[in-house]
Amino acid sequence: MHYTLHQLQIFLKISELQSITKASEALNLTQPAVSIQLKNFQDQFPIPLTEVVGRQLYVTDFGKEIAQAADKILNEVHAINYKTLAYRGQLSGRLKLSVVSTGKYVMPYFLSDFMKQNKGVELIIDVTNKSRVIESLEANEVDFALVSVLPKKLIIDKIALMQNKLFYVASKELNLPEKLSKKRLFEEVPLIYREQGSATRSAMETFIGKNKLSVNKKLELTSNEAVKQAVISGLGCSIMPLIGLRNELRNNDIEIIPVKGLPISSEWNLIWLKSKKLSPAALAYLEFLKREKEKIIAKKFYWTDKI
């Protein structure tokens, strides 16, 4: 057999995502390139690795075993690379994070300088909703998770990063009347929700429940970006994190509507399992955050205090 590490990496990603299209996106490769490598890899085995039923790709039982072996091989290769860097006195290893979707506006700024200073560290980030973030942390799949709502059932350590504020926002396309009462604002104007499991949705529903508001629910969307575009288009209003609205506010695509009881304030926290034995790379990152986080906030997020 003459399979390559590149082919192992591609097949492992296909087996994880159950999709050639998604694998190509995750690996920053074209779909034809991934398909060709999958075919070349398959040609080295007399038993099918995948099968297509309808339009869905499935990994066979034999393919799952090969994927497990591929994962072990690639981990050993990474270990060799890390040991080489460590022998040369460089910090090395993998840093794995799971980040709630709105956290993508926050986390990169707290990682950029650390990664520049430590070329031997490999960064893996999964951006998803709150439920999946907590699942991955509980399953010990990641070193750290970024959340704005702390999990109640896990024993964790944490480091607070910065404040998270949620405002009621609308497009100027809606031409909302001035001084519209809170009751009418929620009853008459379509409200756009995030999906179940989202921390933003949970905060919205808590606010609505505490204020005993009836809601004209219009849409439910699965990402902060999708909600933002729906608001800009005039489909409705929403309660959204300020951190993801800087450009839209600057360009007057979105405006903040004053509502009594808002903004909702919480805090971005980087959390990890208290029982987890952190790698040298993870420990170094925590030290970096403790030392640099206030400088990062002052440099990158000063504008949030002006709103």
Rank of each mutant, 00 (worst) to 15 (best):
N175G: 06
K179M: 10
N164Y: 04
Q163K: 11
V169H: 09
A170I: 09
R184C: 04
S181N: 04
K165R: 12
E188K: 06
N164K: 15
R184W: 01
N164P: 06
E173Y: 06
L154H: 08
N164V: 07
F186G: 01
Q196R: 08
K158F: 13
L161N: 04
K158V: 11
P177T: 06
Y168C: 07
Q196L: 04
N164L: 11
S181L: 06
R184F: 03
L166Y: 13
I192L: 02
L161Y: 07
L191H: 08
L191A: 02
N175T: 11
M162L: 12
K179F: 15
L191K: 05
P190N: 10
Y168T: 03
P190M: 04
K165S: 14
F167Q: 05
L154T: 11
M162F: 14
N164G: 08
A170W: 05
V189L: 06
K165E: 13
I192T: 03
S181T: 15
V189M: 07
S181R: 07
R184N: 14
K182P: 00
E173G: 02
L166G: 02
K182E: 03
V189G: 10
P190S: 14
A170N: 15
K165V: 02
Y193G: 00
S171V: 06
Q196F: 02
K183L: 06
